[in-house]
Design a protein around this nucleic acid. Structure first.
Lengths: 197, 197
DNA sequence: AGTGTTGACATACGAGCCGTATGCGAAATA
DNA sequence: TATTTCGCATACGGCTCGTATGTCAACACT
């Protein structure tokens, strides 16, 4: 039993967990690494040893959240038997998830600003990858128009993502959410081969 | 002639101009206000007097760029006689504009992270407003499905914007751009009432 | 088991940046 | 011309990040 590595993994998890909270509440720039580490009984020494620098910690946090999002979206999509309905469900799930302030702040706002475009993230953006696969499947089945799969996936995700930001910033998210979902599904239908939905 | 106000406006313009360059090249966080001001022969005193704080300067810069973008997009849209084609042209123009590193960095990445969701910006996001107006017109003409105009506009802009980030980050933007534009137009056609384009 | 070595983390330090409080001098005013 | 205004410069304090150095428990080897 490696007591050393065990403790290290535990500390990494603690730091990531604390970072999720701090980044979500204060934003990346305003989050103090001294405060962050002290809340879990560590110092910046542990942080810089484990993650290199502040960006490294954010990258680890984003990676974790992104994985969770992909999992949830895929599950939402799989619950519908139909592939096309699955794609719509995934997009809708995406919109709903982005209502979570943590996801908004960390993944949608600070993430791109600090780490650059999501498509080049080391985490490889699991969400996008999942969408691309469904799109490719639908194209090969002739259900979707033959457009570039990655382009379609990015546009869909981008639209959903932006809709979510809008809904979240709205004073009455509950009223606006269905409007966003409706518009999203209408938009997505433009990718269908058979005009009649 | 008010020599005082004249000089002040001149200094404001100088600072905004320098900020556009610095924010675009180094990013908002890494741009030093001391360096910024000294490049135009001023000090931070001028900055804080004119813009309140660093965020205020970014807001002014974003406002200026946003206005320029709206102007360009509207011009692109107006060049086509058709309203629907105009909407597509605007979206395409949006994608192309976002290839500019300055726009990417300042408006698409740092802007949302520092100032929050664009829809609540003081500048009121001229681009979005213009799109909403066209969408409303198309809906009232029965050309577009009756979805919420703001929702549709936000989704369209979001999709275009995300596509642009993707194209810009691509190693071969020239090859990817047409794919993005094609997918965007296909997607947008989902908002049409008559399935046959 | 005893000893040397590794390495995960703590501590100490330096540099840079932002925001505010204060001072100054030219332009506006009367 | 005397006075007030105010746009900007200067000076200061506090905070933050990243690195360089120290330390002590966990491991390896004999």
């Amino acid at each position: 039993m490696n007591k050393r590595a065990e403790k290290m993994a535990e500390n990494r998890a603690k730091l990531i967990s604390a970072a999720r909270k701090a980044f979500a509440e204060k934003g990346y720039a305003a989050a103090s690494m001294d405060d962050l580490t002290s809340t879990v009984g560590l110092t910046r020494g542990a942080l810089y040893h484990n993650f290199g620098d502040k960006r490294g910690l954010l990258a680890a946090v984003v990676d974790q959240i992104d994985s969770e999002m992909a999992l949830y979206a895929q599950k939402a999509g799989a619950e519908t038997g139909d592939d096309w309905q699955g794609l719509l469900a995934e997009g809708t799930a995406y919109i709903e998830m982005a209502l979570d302030p943590e996801i908004q702040r960390i993944v949608l706002l600070d993430g791109p600003a600090v780490l650059g475009d999501p498509s080049q993230w080391p985490s490889q953006n699991s969400c996008l990858q999942a969408t691309i696969q469904i799109v490719e499947k639908l194209i090969s089945q002739g259900i979707m128009k033959t457009v570039d799969a990655e382009a379609a996936a990015r546009l869909l995700n981008g639209a959903a993502l932006n809709a979510a930001l809008w809904v979240a910033a709205s004073p009455t998210p509950e009223e606006v959410l269905p409007l966003a979902v409706e518009a999203f599904q209408a938009l997505a239908s433009g990718l269908l081969n058979q005009p009649a939905r």
